[in-house]
């Protein structure tokens, strides 16, 4: 296990370097003068020169990359052009926002997806099976941004059941400690606030979690169907194990490995989808931060936003791979 972990970590190095190179080149690949692209055609030569200096564009390319990497290693993500605040500092609350949202979206996707998949496999060819798979098919094809808009329209604007934007109510804002609002409200014992935070989480989590939910449901169903046909399940059945335990205890254990892989792959989709979901729900997360930066061409923020999301994605995949090999030792000897 240790050897595998080390090998897996070493494989990460070229990927991380490549990622940094790619993100670094964003500003250099802009056709023409990046300073002009940021400030517009009408900017005076001095202002343009200042901007170039600020972005370090006057140094030779190699020195620029070296400085960029040195900064990154020390946790320096550059400075936002708009707010003049170091991005690493500015990003923290947004990062927490995105993590809270993706966590809940994944929890929703896993809970509904796995259970629907199990039930569909258990009662194969029943009306529940057909309905669940139909919904899963539609779910896979659902554009996240449209689902979000529809949810807002139905549940917030028409039915007034749930809030449509933001992370907490404006009247009773959460006092940020860790920037994870669930934790923050619990820490100060503000349970009214906690309820508000949870209410704000529902619509965006469902929007973001629908596609992974659908994929997980389909994967769980097919994986369960395969396991349910195996000899050990028949033996257990013959020995009189109750059907509920047969399905949820004996079969699920083995069916879970392929499900876990899908979950790992889905986090990428989730992080990408976060950009869209956060934009629609005005959710103060990295995605929204990135979106706002794109519209005003704040390139350092765009670069760092993309880098951080990709970094999280790579880390999650690493964790999933390690978990995967811990559950199924055969993986290590590939």
């Amino acid at each position: 296990m240790l050897a595998y972990t080390i090998r897996r970590l070493l494989m990460l190095i070229p990927v991380l370097i490549g990622m940094s190179l790619l993100v670094f080149s964003i500003i250099h690949l802009i056709p023409g003068d990046p300073a002009k692209t940021i400030l517009g055609e009408k900017a005076s030569p001095e202002v343009l020169e200042n901007m170039r200096e600020e972005l370090g564009l006057n140094d030779p390319l190699l020195i620029q990359y070296k400085n960029y990497m040195l900064g990154l290693v020390q946790g320096d993500l550059g400075t936002s052009i708009r707010t003049k605040v170091p991005i690493a500092k500015e990003m923290k609350p947004y990062l927490a926002g995105t993590m809270e949202l993706t966590f809940f979206a994944m929890a929703f996707a896993l809970f509904i997806g796995v259970n629907a998949g199990i039930l569909a496999a258990w009662k194969q060819n029943s009306w529940f099976d057909y309905m669940a798979m139909l919904i899963a098919l539609i779910g896979v094809s659902m554009p996240v941004f449209w689902l979000g808009l529809m949810e807002q329209w139905v549940f917030a604007q028409n039915l007034h059941w749930l809030p449509s934007i933001g992370r907490s109510s404006i009247i009773n804002p959460v006092h940020p400690i860790s920037h994870f609002y669930i934790i923050d409200t619990i820490l100060v014992g503000d349970f009214g606030g906690l309820l508000e935070v949870l209410k704000h989480l529902i619509l965006p989590s469902i929007a973001l979690g629908t596609i992974p939910m659908a994929i997980i449901a389909r994967m769980t169903r097919s994986s369960m169907l395969e396991v349910m046909r195996s000899d050990y399940i028949r033996t257990a059945k013959a020995k009189g194990v109750k059907e509920f335990f047969l399905v949820y205890k004996h079969a699920l254990k083995n069916a879970f490995i392929p499900i876990l892989t899908v979950v790992g792959l889905q986090t990428g989709l989730l992080l990408g989808g976060a950009v869209l979901t956060e934009t629609i729900f005005a959710w103060p997360g990295i995605g929204k931060y990135l979106y706002d930066a794109i519209s005003i061409r704040d390139y350092p923020v765009i670069q760092s936003g993309i880098l951080i999301i990709a970094f999280i994605f790579v880390m999650i995949n690493l964790i999933v791979d390690l978990l995967y090999s811990a559950i199924d030792p055969r993986i290590r000897y590939r």
Binding site: G18, M19, G273, I302, A310
Partner: peptide
């Protein structure tokens, strides 16, 4: 394969965003 690995390290929509930010 390493180039593929690096590209797959980005959620696809994010990489697309990066490319469009460059190209306009």
């Amino acid at each position: 394969s390493r180039i593929f690995d690096i590209m797959l390290a980005f959620p696809s929509i994010l990489l697309a965003i990066a490319i469009v930010t460059i190209l306009g």
